[in-house]
Structures are given as C-alpha cells and as structure tokens.
Design a protein around this nucleic acid. Structure first.
Lengths: 161, 161
DNA sequence: TATTTAGGTCAGCCATATTGACTTAATTAT
DNA sequence: ATAATTAAGTCAATATGGCTGACCTAAATA
C-alpha cells in the first residue's frame, strides 16, 4: 500500500514537499495575524474580536445564529466578545423581522476599526501578490478553496454571493 | 492616494478579491488543524503538543532554544507542554555537547504519534494538490513562502536546508 | 396549545499564551 | 581566576478564547 502510494504519487507531491507546505501554512498564518493582533492588544481586544468585526462588516445585518455558524464557536464563547463590542459601541444590535433574531451592524467606530485591522492584512497580501502573475494568483485561490471543508465552502460561497 | 492606489492596482488585486483570500486563509487553516486536534483531544493534548512533536520530529537533536525560536513562544509556555511530552515519554532529552543545552528527539512512541497526526494533514494536502498542475502547486508554495516574515523565512530555510 | 427556535446568562473548567522574578550550571570574555 | 553571559528551569499571577451544562425568556411555528 505504501509502495503503491509512492508509485502513484508524483515526485512534487512527496512527503517532504508536502511537509514544507504544512510548515509554510503554520508560519504564514502566524505572521498574517500578527499585525492586527498588535493593534487589538492596545485596546484590550483579541483576535476573536477581529473575526467578529470582520464578518459583521462583510455581511451587514447578520444574525447571531449566522455569525455563530461562520465562526463555528459556541454562543457562550461569542457572548463575551460580542457584548464587549456592543458595550463599547463598535457593533449595534437591532431587532430583526423575526423578532426573536437580532441583526448586527458595525457602527462608524466599528467600521473604522475594521478598516484599520483589515488594511494591514490587505496590504500584506497585495504586496505579496503583486510579485505574481494573474494565473499564479488564480491557482493560489483555487487551491486554498479546495483546502476548505465542504461546510466552510458553503459559508464562503454564501458570504460572497 | 486612494485613487492612485486604485489606478495602480490590477483588477484581480482589488479589495474584494483580497478579502476573499483573507477568508479562505481563515477557513482553510481552521479546517486544516481540525483533524489532528480531534486525535490530540483523546490523549489530553492540544495543538501546542503537535507543533512541538512536529518540529522535533523534523529536526532531530533540536535544542530548547532552537525550538523556542521556531515556535516564537516563551520558555514558560513551552515548559508545560514539553514536560508533559517528556513525562509521557513521547520526547527524550539528552545533554548536548555544550552541557548547558539539551537535545530533543522523538521516542518511538513520539514518532508514532507524529506520524499519525501529520498523516492526516499530509493526506488532506495531497488529495487537494492532486487536482492541480505542478505549476499551480509551485506557484502556491511560492506565494505562501512570500506571505511569511523574513525571520520565519530564515527558520523555514534552516529546517529545510 | 404545545413545541421549537433565537438569544441570553450563570458557573465552572481547560488550554495556551503572557510578564516578571529568581535559580543553577556551564561557557565565554576580560 | 573572576566576571559576565547563556541555556535551561521554576514559581506565580494574569489574559484570552475556547468548552460544557443548566436554565431562562420571548417569539414563531406546528
């Protein structure tokens, strides 16, 4: 089975090459989150706050339930982070048409923070991608997309519909 | 400045497209770590244990200091995780030539766990990459590498020398 | 009218990280 | 030979971001 696997696996997909990708994913993700983390620290927020702000900013009038299904955390985990964001007026809650639900939007303050944080990551990515061809970038996105679970793919498609 | 930026930015690098990449990085990294996390949970370990096992397995006779510089965490953080791994005989310590240092290697038990965890990720990546061309994969790796900080690049180069 | 759903809340727990202070033993520099 | 630096370890306190379980309210739906 191992031998068969080796026979069927192209050289550029051997274990060593794949392990390099594992390492690059680790390093790149860590370095990618470092910038916003530093900014967040100054205002006593963490990465979890950024994620909430990010997705609320992306998708106006998100409900709590939808947000939870994107983040895949429990409502108790979200609660602490979200109530801080609401108390400090980064996020505004309103009642939905279904009056059991609540809709989330960013306040102006929230939009400003969102922009400040995401701009760091956007600039970083743009600076990297400028060195590559449109085809490379297209391939990169397609591979990343394929790395995502079916369930998360649905979420991604949903918020980019 | 914003206008100038827009003029100079190719369409496929506009903010919307880059935000998609931000989201794909979030979803893919989360889904990528999910498999090992589940296995680790059963033996009361966490992701931090996997990282230590991974890099010790990669680079035999790593010292504590070198490991810390790869992981970029404090020795106090490493301490808890590492002492568990040593106590439970996944990792074996020995004194280095410089007798202040310690060398880390995986025991057989450690190698087995390393393999079990990494195989999940290796298979996942291989299954994804099989759908792509060698060129796409080469581009993917190069872009990921460019996403990494200079300092981390050095670490990556070091462990893959 | 009964059940389900969306959201909230309290309490306790765990994992992973941090800072700061201090120790020991070995190596290196003066 | 002594002083300074380095590698590693340890203790204590703190923060963040998760989790489970139990329980509540109000609104929508069956």
């Amino acid at each position: 089975m191992a031998d068969l696997n080796k026979l069927l696996t192209p050289l550029f997909l051997n274990e060593g090459e794949i392990r390099k990708i594992i390492e690059l994913l680790f390093f790149s993700y860590r370095d990618f989150t470092e910038g916003p983390d530093k900014v967040l620290e100054k205002i006593n927020f963490g990465r979890a706050h950024h994620r909430v702000i990010y997705f609320v900013g992306k998708q106006n009038n998100l409900t709590i339930k939808e947000l939870l299904s994107i983040l895949k955390i429990t409502k108790q985990s979200l609660s602490r982070v979200l109530s801080q964001l609401v108390n400090e007026k980064y996020i505004i809650l309103s009642v939905g048409e279904d009056k059991r639900t609540k809709k989330l939007i960013l306040s102006k303050k929230g939009q400003e923070l969102e922009k400040r944080l995401s701009e760091i990551q956007i600039k970083k990515i743009r600076n990297v991608l400028l060195k590559f061809s449109e085809m490379d970038i297209y391939g990169f996105k397609k591979i990343l997309y394929e790395m995502v679970d079916d369930e998360s793919k649905e979420k991604f498609d949903e918020i980019n519909r």
